[in-house]
Amino acid sequence: MKEHDVSEFSEQDNQFKAFETALEESGLYPLTATGIEIFQPNFGKLCNQACKHCHVGAGPDRKEKISRKTLEDCLFILKESRIPVVDITGGAPELNEHFRWFVQEVKQLNRHVMVRHNLTVMFEPGQEDLPEFFKDNEVELICSLPYYLERSVDRQRGTGVFNKSMQALKRLNALGYGMEENGLQLNLVYNPGGAFLPPSQSAIEADFKRELDHRYQIRFNHLFTIANMPIGRFRDLLEKIDNYDCYMNRLIAAYNPEAAKAVMCRDTLSIGWDGRLYDCDFNQMLGMNCNHGAPSRLSEFDLKTLNSRQIVTGLHCYGCTAGVGSSCGGAVVEE
């Protein structure tokens, strides 16, 4: 399967209403940042899994990874700014040899650290003590678990992933993760098993809590619903089954200006493994740098300009503005 690393929009996409037109019609163009609350470095594309919907195209054979130098630059920027949250993503960022050092350095700066954790990486060689490391550094975990049934999870994430994920969640619960509202935070991420929008976040969270507790005695804090983005492997899959147009039309029909006002790119800055700057992790995968006069590299970082930059948008942005919206923190509009 081909892996997309650059903008993948094609002639076929001209049939759809431009996202910028939808923004204009709802009085939101140009979409601008409101500041930077979340600093989101992507550690690269190496992952122990190769999920069917992955917008990163991550997998065990990917070589792209963030360097120590780029991470030192990130720390310098964090020291010089008051950005309160660092949200580490990948791939599986834990597989990067600089991961633990970076987390500890960020904690020294008294910033909140979140890690997008795939649950199964703790069973990889050398990662056995990962749960204890997370606990010792009070890392908030955002864990992928697209459903509470084995068949659904394994179909999307690979055979055996569900059972390993259940083992991992039990280990995290045993350390105190997910047990108290104000304790160690263990949040799960639901994404649809195909070309449809996520259900109500509160309703599906209640299902997950009931079913995971009943079937496996597993607890967690919150469930975030995230829509599948029509890019990367998921787009390849949609095209393969001739469902791309249908999914795009579904996203466009569900465009919600209230969700557009609250999209995560407005208070997030995404940093690529190679030190480039992006408005979000999806733009990063499409090679769409920060633009419109804002710096596009970490070496040119300028907080004032980035705080109020114009967001770079494209057709894929409909994925974050459909229905109650979608972000790294789940739905963005109250149901």
Binding site: P192, G193, F196, L197, P198, P199, S200, A203, D207
Partner: peptide, 12 residues
């Protein structure tokens, strides 16, 4: 079918 999935029902 689409509505049921989007309201959180599963195939079972």
């Amino acid at each position: 079918t689409q509505a049921s999935l989007e309201k959180g029902s599963n195939p079972e």
